[in-house]
Design a protein around this nucleic acid. Structure first.
Length: 356
DNA sequence: AAGTCGGGGGA
DNA sequence: TCCCCAGACTT
């Protein structure tokens, strides 16, 4: 099938069946499309929608985002994960103000030069918000192309990636590129799904290699998996007389970079030493139930230890900025999901205690 | 080319 | 439980 016929079929399908009411499709300005694209990296639409609404209400334009403290940006990102996305978004906004007069660039190279924006995200911004005929290659498009052409091999390797980009370029139409971009994402998200694709409704089914050979389940080739290593961490929950919890500011990069978290040590022995320094021989940890938090590349076994500062003779903590945080109130910045979870659990517990 | 970066949702 | 999701960056 010609490239032209391919895009025509996809566009015709989209006109009747595509999604046209997502929040970022209203007033699809470069800024709104940019923010949505960053949030949608490795994150599903349903999860993103409430975050997008809150984020746009707080940071309605590039300048508001650029002038906001990073803590505010991370606070609105709390729970979304991949916090480097938020740090890059903030940094890029400041660069856009400094170097592009506050306007999101409408040029592929200028966009790709900004932190957090790669070729696919730049293509999405240019096609969806600027009407330019630029291809994208997100997970949806990869899946559709791998199945349609029967592309073998994991899309994480350079060879496969080059091939997929070539195909994506070939099919992107000069006209209606924005609708085509949205159409391909909708096709991948609603019909050409990972499990049980709805080939019966697909406009490309007649010529699809995976469909003809019954290999929908095997394509695209999954990433090679290895067993996740497990690490352990002891979260030190220091609680004062008012029920507030001590939080520390984490280093600006790395895991949960720039977020606020409980003091953390890597063994029970260290935790005991930490408490002895803080409270002398009188301090006692109360062990809360351990739980596992799973990341993309390892599992973290979290052992929460609780101590009330009434038993402490000295703070015993000194590294980096610290704050006392009252669960239920607005946190000082970004909070990782398990930290929020624990804080919430203690808030609920103290409430039920006070009712007895 | 491989490793780093979160969290959640679907099957 | 396992897999992956509107990826990009660092090494």
């Amino acid at each position: 099938m010609s490239a032209d016929a391919f895009s025509r079929r996809v566009l015709a399908w989209w006109r009747d069946n595509g999604r046209k009411d997502l929040p970022w499709q209203h007033q699809p300005t470069p800024y709104r499309v940019w923010v949505s694209e960053i949030m949608l990296q490795q994150t599903q639409v349903a999860t993103v929608i409430p975050y997008f609404e809150r984020f746009m209400a707080q940071f309605p334009n590039v300048r508001m985002l650029a002038s906001a403290p990073l803590d505010d940006v991370l606070r609105h990102w709390s729970g979304l994960g991949y916090y480097a996305r938020a740090r890059n978004l903030h940094k890029a906004a400041q660069r856009i103000v400094a170097q592009h007069a506050g306007d999101v660039p409408d040029d592929l190279d200028a966009l790709c030069a900004l932190p957090g924006i790669g070729r696919s995200t730049a293509g999405a911004i240019l096609s969806l918000a600027c009407g330019q005929a630029q291809p994208i290659l997100d997970g949806n498009v990869k899946r559709v192309l791998c199945r349609y052409y029967g592309v073998e091999g994991w899309a994480g390797t350079n060879a496969v990636l080059r091939q997929l980009w070539r195909l994506a370029e070939r099919h992107t139409p000069e006209r209606e590129a924005g609708s085509y971009t949205q159409a391909m994402m909708d096709l991948g998200a609603t019909l050409c799904t990972r499990a049980q694709p709805a080939c019966g409704q697909c406009p490309l089914a007649a010529d699809c290699v995976a469909r003809r050979t019954g290999r929908q389940r095997e394509l695209p080739t999954p990433r090679p998996r290895r067993e996740l290593p497990e690490r352990e961490a002891w979260f030190l929950l220091l609680r004062d007389a008012e029920g507030r919890l001590l939080l520390e500011h984490r280093p600006p990069s790395g895991l949960w970079g720039g977020l606020w978290s409980f003091p953390e040590v890597s063994s029970r022995v260290e935790a005991d030493a930490w408490l002895e320094r803080a409270a002398g021989a009188g301090g006692v940890w109360q062990e809360l139930e351990a739980f596992t938090h799973t990341f993309s590349h390892f599992r973290l076994r979290i052992h929460p230890l609780l101590a009330d500062t009434e038993t402490l003779v000295a703070s015993g903590v000194k590294d980096g900025p610290q704050v006392w945080y009252k669960p239920g109130l607005s946190p000082p910045g970004g909070i990782a999901a398990p930290v929020a979870q624990l804080a919430h659990a203690l808030q609920v517990q103290s409430k039920s205690d006070s009712q007895e």
